[in-house]
Write a protein that binds this DNA or RNA. Structure first.
Length: 841
RNA sequence: GCCGAAGUGGCGGAAUUGGUAGACGCGCUAGAUUCAGGAUCUAGUGGACAUUAUAUCCGUGGGAGUUCGAAUCUCCCCUUCGGCACCA
């Protein structure tokens, strides 16, 4: 009886050895090319879940693979440690969020270590450490001074469940991204990052992020939402002043029959004064204000049953058409957004569906100015607006022009009169980062009655989150009521002042953590330029698709802002991005409420880490969703068991030789076939990992190799395998299999590697290079088709030419049956693969 | 409604450039071993036909098309998932 596959002992032993030898410590070593692989760091919620296991396993395979390829690999891990769950838990358990967070971190660190992940733990940090967030406060101050931060009162998204404000990106379908509570609107003072200053660069950068999935780039492009048009000034009629609009259709300017203002437009109430419409306008705006934010959005739903019609009211005022001088009525319309463009639109009902609906409801005139090709639109008969291309009509000097040309021509005309200009608008809004919660980075600002808003002096950083704060049951932040925190003196005049009690959105911490990993020990500055330049950008970033916009857009913005402050020289933080799919059970995302959670700890106890890693990697390619299968786990376990036995039961034979070309050259036919398989497997696995990270097909290739080895042993029997060459080929095959599998199942392969007589860990082996001669086949199998249908196969020498193959094939009795009495029309030959005989009759 | 991705055996999934569809694994069936179960090993496993030819036909959501040849390319339709949803 040979040794059993005791995964627990094996895994613990090798983990201890790797850690003891510091094999995963990244060093400042310029002799080797650097490679920075990073997985999105976790929120310390308490326990690792299968999504983490998948994410970190994928990253670990990449890290180990790159090390074997000779790279100086940086693979760090840390904690995204600020956030609401800590506060909620602290309230529930009457403790401090810091205590809860650190306990979770300790537990999760143990779990990650048990997974055998090759992290450089010396670089670990938690974002709730003052040593981390002090630098974030410094960045905030520098950004404030550079004009990238401002404070403003505005209507914000308020989540009652979380008792705080959310950024636009954090509202999904009118609900909070974290707790799913319906978001309400609230008027509040808050701090903003001017991400819109970088809108154009963030958009253009998408074209250069060739290592990112197209899906993510599309989502980011749509979120930024650039549109080119014109800003047009409409002078008020009969009074001083003007109203400006943004339009992407300056070509339809002649068709503007009225103007629509947002109910929030600052001119809305002023315009109606003294027109007799005052009361109606006031009543309309009052009514509109009472409609919950979510219902306001439903005015253009495809399902007409819940669609609210567009509503508005006439202000009694008019503007002058900038080109025709015509008098145009101004309406308030509930579908016009104050946040986009200028909050006012010129209404062209013939060529904009929304304006068409509004005009129809209030009996406003429709004027056709674009005629589509081959049609003659009449306002009376139109059932919907024509938004497509066409030729201009009723447009004075621009009649007959193509509408695309007219956009340019009309904009130019407006420019010469000083009534308009070309303008680019973005959908992207500034990033609201104020949170009315406790457990986050304090915003380092002070409100002084005489000096206004003043940043904390750099030498006074960090502004520390007090550890003696008591949280109240409602979840409101204790900071505004904690005088010892907010009471301070003005850094400018020394007078009494009040500290800002809002904290920062936790997405700020994750916007620069990847840079801090490069120099976590730097204590004079946030970043060490030399190391930052050497390591960044991250070569491979791995995480969930749910951050396609949120975290990934914020981190891109922050990188550019830090670059402009002089802290970095890169434009983009992540050169390559892999978005891994979700882990599902019974077709649904694992969740406590559905009761379909698979516990990683339990799995590891029953099968070992290698089995779990193997199953996860084998079950589907990383970017796709993964369906958890207990039977699949069993299968993975069985495979590892098989390899273990294959080596332990044949140790004597395997160790009787040393693999190498010398003993392999005079092998038998079976030996040559095995060697061919070995080297083809090396080729295949390397390609699968290198090109697409398709570990599932890489593993199946190694399984094939193992099957081949078992076949050899079965066919010839172990006692028959006494020839040196044969054992050498088997040993070569098994060593290759172990090395190829090592990044995926590091413990068992390292164990078996030692059993084969090696002194050092398999992780120090260089990644194998295939012997192309050995991989080459002597003969090839040619598929023979007649009229595209498979009819026969022939085995020919590798270098047989077309003529020879043709004559062999045409002589084949199986083929003759189909060609007999028919005319051969043509013969198509795909070298080394296939021959197709096209016959007629 | 608009944009995007996907649809392949009982299941997870292969098929890299238009060239043997279903690799590999799970499951299932039969056999070996075993007191029995489990584990392991061997063989088989898309469907139909049905019987010695190891043929033939059908088959990658449905329908058309391009091609000597289509899971792969084009068009139309269906389904599922994701994103956006008054952005002027």
């Amino acid at each position: 009886m040979t040794a059993r596959y005791n995964f627990k002992t094996i895994e613990e032993r090798h983990q201890a050895e790797w850690a003891g030898k510091g094999l995963f410590t990244a060093r400042e070593d310029n002799s080797r090319p650097r490679y920075y692989v990073l997985e999105m760091f976790p929120y310390p919620s308490g326990r690792i879940h299968m999504g983490h296991v998948r994410n970190y396993t994928i990253g670990d395979v990449v890290a180990r693979y790159k090390r074997m390829q000779g790279y100086n690999v940086l693979h760090p891990m840390g904690w995204d440690a600020f956030g609401m769950p800590a506060e909620n838990a602290a309230i529930k358990h009457r403790t401090h969020p810091a205590t809860w967070t650190h306990e979770n971190i300790d537990h999760m660190r143990k779990q990650l270590k048990r997974l055998g992940l090759s992290y450089d733990w010396e670089r670990e940090f938690a974002t709730c450490d003052p040593d981390y967030y002090r630098w974030e406060q410094l960045f905030f101050i520098q950004m404030f001074e550079a004009g990238l931060v401002y404070r403003q009162k505005s209507r914000v998204n308020w989540c009652e469940g979380c008792q705080t404000v959310l950024a636009n990106e954090q509202v999904e379908d009118g609900r909070c991204w974290r707790c799913d509570t319906e978001v309400v609107e609230k008027e509040l003072d808050g701090w903003f990052f001017k991400i819109t200053d970088y809108a154009q660069e963030l958009l253009e950068g998408c074209d250069r992020l060739t290592g990112w999935p197209e899906k993510v780039l599309t989502m980011q492009r749509n979120w930024i939402g650039r549109s080119v048009g014109a800003e047009i000034t409409f002078p008020l009629f009969g009074m001083d002043g003007e109203i400006r609009v943004f339009t992407t259709r300056p070509d339809t300017l002649w068709g503007a029959t009225f103007m629509s203002l947002s109910p929030e437009h600052p001119m809305a109430l002023k315009l109606c004064m003294g027109t007799g419409q005052e009361e109606e306008v006031k009543a309309f705006i009052e009514r509109w204000r009472k409609i919950p934010a979510k219902e306001r959005q439903f005015t253009q739903s495809p399902d007409h049953s819940i669609a609210r019609p567009k509503e508005g009211v006439f202000t009694g005022a008019y503007v002058k058409h900038p080109l025709t001088g015509e008098c145009i009525p101004i309406h308030i319309a509930d579908f016009v957004l104050m946040e986009y463009g200028t909050g006012a639109v010129m209404a062209v009902p013939a060529h904009d569906q929304r304006d068409f609906e509004f005009a129809g409801r209030y009996g406003l005139p429709i004027k056709v100015v674009i005629q589509p090709e081959g049609a003659n639109l009449e306002p009376e008969t139109m059932k919907e607006a024509w938004e497509g291309p066409g030729t201009l009509v009723n447009s004075g000097p621009f009649d007959g022009k193509d509408n695309e040309e007219a956009k340019v021509a009309i904009t130019r005309q407006l420019e010469t009169q000083g009534l308009g200009r070309q303008k680019v608008s973005y959908r992207l809004r500034d990033w609201g980062i104020s949170r009315q919660r406790f457990w986050g980075t304090p915003i380092p600002m002070v409100q002084c009655d005489t000096c206004g808003l003043v940043p904390v002096r750099e030498q006074d950083l960090p502004v520390i989150l007090p550890l003696d704060a008591r949280l109240d049951k409602q979840g409101r932040s204790p900071l505004p009521r904690l005088e010892s925190f907010w009471s301070t003196t003005c850094p400018k005049c020394g007078g009494p002042a009040r500290r800002e009690t809002d904290t920062m959105d936790t997405f700020v911490e994750s916007s620069w953590y990847f840079a801090r990993y490069v120099c976590p020990d730097e204590n004079k500055a946030p970043l060490d330029r030399k190391r930052v330049d050497a390591w960044l950008p991250v070569n491979q970033y791995i995480g969930g698709i749910e951050h396609a916009i949120l975290h990934l857009l914020y981190a891109r913005f922050f990188t550019k802002a830090l670059r402009d402050l002089g802290w970095l020289s890169i434009d983009e933080p992540f050169a390559n991005l892999l978005t891994q799919g979700m882990v599902l059970k019974d077709g649904a995302k694992m969740s406590k409420s559905k009761g379909n959670v698979v516990d990683p700890d339990e799995m590891i106890r029953n099968y070992g880490v290698d089995t779990i890693r193997l199953f996860i990697l084998f079950a589907s390619p990383p970017e796709r969703d993964l369906e958890w299968s207990d039977q699949g786990v069993e299968g993975a376990h069985r495979f590892l068991h098989r390899i273990f036995r294959l080596i332990t039961e044949n140790l004597e034979g395997l160790n009787s030789v040393r693999a190498g070309r010398q003993t392999l050259i005079n092998g038998t036919k079976a030996t040559r076939a095995l060697r061919q398989k070995t080297h083809r497997t090396i080729l295949k696995v390397t390609e699968d990992i290198e090109q697409r990270f398709h570990f599932n097909t890489a593993i199946s290739a190694v399984m094939e190799l193992i099957n081949e080895v078992m076949g050899c042993l079965n066919r010839y029997g172990t006692p028959g395998m006494d020839k040196q060459g044969d054992w050498a080929a088997l040993r070569e095959a098994m060593e290759a299999a172990l090395i190829l599998l090592f990044p995926m199942v590091p413990h068992i392969t390292d164990e078996l590697w030692r059993l084969l007589g090696h002194q050092k860990t398999i992780g120090l082996e260089p990644w194998p290079v295939p012997d192309l001669d050995a991989a080459r086949a002597d003969t090839v199998n040619i598929v023979v088709q007649v009229n595209g249908k498979l009819r026969s196969q022939v085995e020919v020498d590798q270098d047989t030419d077309k003529e020879n193959i043709e004559s062999i094939v045409l002589d084949d009795p199986k083929i003759k049956r189909y060609t007999k009495g028919r005319a051969i029309h043509k013969i198509i030959y795909v070298p080394g693969r296939l021959i197709n005989i096209v016959v007629k009759g």
